Deep mutational scan, measured.
Amino acid sequence: ERVRARYDYEAQNEDELSFKKGDIITVLEKDDGWWKGRNGKEGLFPSNYVEELE
């Protein structure tokens, strides 16, 4: 599954994923509120910062 970033997100910890608004992220795992994904790097990000691609 792929999602698009709705906002910029700056990683707060080294296991998190940074991205810019409009970036496409491949979702690897979904957990409550935090998803694991890849966009060149791999890490956790808040699920409310992304939207599913149509």
Rank of each mutant, 00 (worst) to 15 (best):
V3Q: 03
R4E: 05
V50C: 05
Y7P: 01
N48M: 11
L28R: 02
E42L: 10
K20A: 08
K20Y: 07
D31M: 15
G33S: 12
G37I: 00
F19C: 02
E16I: 00
E54T: 14
K30H: 06
F19W: 00
G43K: 01
G33Y: 15
R6N: 06
V27T: 02
E10T: 14
A11F: 03
K41D: 08
D15M: 14
L53S: 06
G33D: 11
Q12E: 10
L44E: 03
S47F: 09
I24C: 08
R6T: 10
K21Q: 10
E51I: 08
V27H: 01
N13M: 07
R2F: 14
E16W: 03
I24H: 05
I25M: 05
R4H: 05
V3Y: 14
D32T: 11
E1A: 12
F45R: 03
A5G: 05
D31W: 15
K41M: 09
Y7T: 08
Q12R: 13
N48L: 10
Y49F: 12
E29L: 11
V3C: 11
Q12T: 12
A5K: 03
V27P: 00
W34R: 08
S47Y: 10
E29S: 15
P46C: 08
K30G: 02
G22L: 04
D32A: 10
G33N: 14
D15I: 10
W34T: 05
K30R: 12
Y9S: 02
E29Y: 12
W35T: 05
V50M: 06
Q12K: 14
K30Y: 07
S18E: 04
K30C: 06
E42N: 06
G33I: 14
R6H: 05
R6W: 05
V3N: 04
R2M: 14
G43V: 02
L28N: 02
G40D: 12
K36V: 10
K21F: 05
E16A: 03
L44V: 13
L17E: 00
G22M: 05
N39Q: 08
P46N: 08
E10N: 12
A5R: 02
G40T: 12
E54R: 12
D32K: 14
E10S: 11
L44M: 14
S18M: 03
K36T: 07
Y9H: 06
F19P: 00
E42P: 06
L17T: 01
G33C: 15
E1G: 12
D23H: 05
N39C: 13
A5L: 02
I24P: 00
Q12I: 08
L53R: 05
G33L: 13
E14T: 10
D23F: 05
L28F: 08
D15R: 14
G33H: 15
E16F: 07
L53Y: 14
G33W: 14
E42H: 06
I24W: 09
R6K: 15
R2C: 14
T26F: 11
R38L: 09
